[in-house]
Structure formats: C-alpha cells, structure tokens
C-alpha cells in the first residue's frame, strides 16, 4: 500500500501505476477495436418488416413510439387484381360498392379508390392518413392477391436501437436490413 512510502513517494508511484494502467487500457481498447473490425459493417442497419412473416395483427399501429406509426401500408400495384370488390377496401358484406364511410374497411379512410376502366379500380394509400393498422392488409391477404402489405417507412422511422414494434411482433417479422436495401417489397406471388 501507498502508506509505506514516504511523503512524496505516493504521488509518483500512483502516477506510475496510473500511466501503466492507461497504457494497458489503451492497448486493451485498441485490441478491442481490432477485434471489432471483423464484426463491423460500414453500413448502418434499419428496421424492416418481412411481408412473408407478417401476421397482420395490428400491433404496428399501437406499439410504435411514433404516433401515428412509422409503419404504413404499401401497395404492390403489379400484384393487384384491381378488383371492383376489393376486400382490402370494403368491409365484409359491404352495403354498396361505393366509397361511403359505412363500406370502407380502413378506419382512417386512407385508401383512395379510383375507377380505371370497366371493371377495374385502382387503390392507392394516402400515407399521411395511414396509421399502419393492417386491416386492409388482412382483407387483401385473406381474400385477395395480397398486394397490400406493411412496410416501415424510413422517412418517418427513428430507427430506434431496439424497435418497440419488433419486440411485440407475434410473427417475428421485423429484422434489421442494410440501409442500402431498406425495403422488403413484394414483387411476385409465392406460387401459382
């Protein structure tokens, strides 16, 4: 212990120890950084939903730290059947096939329905209104082509270190993807 030393000795001895520890710490940190290099990735990672695993449970709307959620419904137009009776747009047993509130499935009326030509209608999502509840996704998935699906919108997402939706996702559908490929879009039918 330091007390065995005489008056001025403890200071120098402690300084020496400190210097030694510092060099050791520096070496350690350097070694650590060297080890880390093999685990590094120059790209940052962002969260995204794998549409194939999504169970459309509705938690994206409620669990996100943002209100409304950074998860929105997106539409793969190439897969869409342009149905007149869109099961993503209309409630089950719609009263009439028109845009009246009682017929719409979307709770915030974020889907726009537009006539293209007989008998085809185009459905587009207004993302400023969409809250990511996935009701339309469920409708489209169950009875339609599944061309509507949920995605994390990166202009909104805060990219939390631990995504609170990912934690609550019953389908384990969230994963980190490299920032250069930040979306997992549906591009083809899985079969048929």
């Amino acid at each position: 212990m330091a007390d065995q030393e005489k008056t001025s000795a403890p200071v120098t001895r402690r300084d020496f120890l400190r210097q030694g520890s510092r060099v050791a710490a520096l070496t350690g940190l350097g070694g650590f950084a060297g080890l880390l290099v093999s685990k590094l990735k120059s790209e940052t990672l962002v969260w995204q939903i794998d549409p194939a695993k999504c169970l459309r449970c509705g938690r994206c709307a409620t669990e996100c730290v943002l209100k409304p959620s950074a998860v929105k419904c997106v539409h793969a137009f190439a897969l869409c059947g342009y149905c007149e009776l869109c099961t993503g747009y209309f409630v089950p047993e719609p009263n009439e096939l028109n845009t009246a509130a009682e017929n719409q499935l979307c709770p915030v009326s974020a889907i726009k329905r537009r006539w293209i030509e007989d008998p085809y209608y185009e459905y587009t999502i207004d993302e400023t209104l969409c809250i990511g509840c996935g009701k339309c996704v469920e409708g489209c998935h169950r009875f339609g082509n599944g061309s509507l699906f949920l995605q994390v919108r990166h202009n909104l997402c805060l990219n939390c270190n631990e995504c609170s939706i990912a934690r609550a996702c019953p389908g384990d559908a969230f994963r980190r993807v490299p920032v250069s490929q930040p979306y997992l879009l549906k591009t083809s039918y899985s079969h048929g």
Binding site: C54, A78, E117, Y120, N145, F149, L185, S188, S190, G192
Partner: peptide, 24 residues
C-alpha cells in the same frame, strides 16, 4: 400465413393505364 397468392389475375388495361410505382 402465406405470401401473396394470385386469386385474381392482374388486369390487362385496354386504356393503356400505367401502373403507379410503389414509393420507397
């Protein structure tokens, strides 16, 4: 759970309607 399934074939537009692009 299953991925997209083609129940209704995507239309072939006579009016030459262009499909919108999914924004990213």
């Amino acid at each position: 759970n299953a991925a997209a399934e083609q129940r209704f074939p995507p239309p072939e537009f006579e009016s030459g309607h262009q499909l919108p692009v999914t924004t990213v």
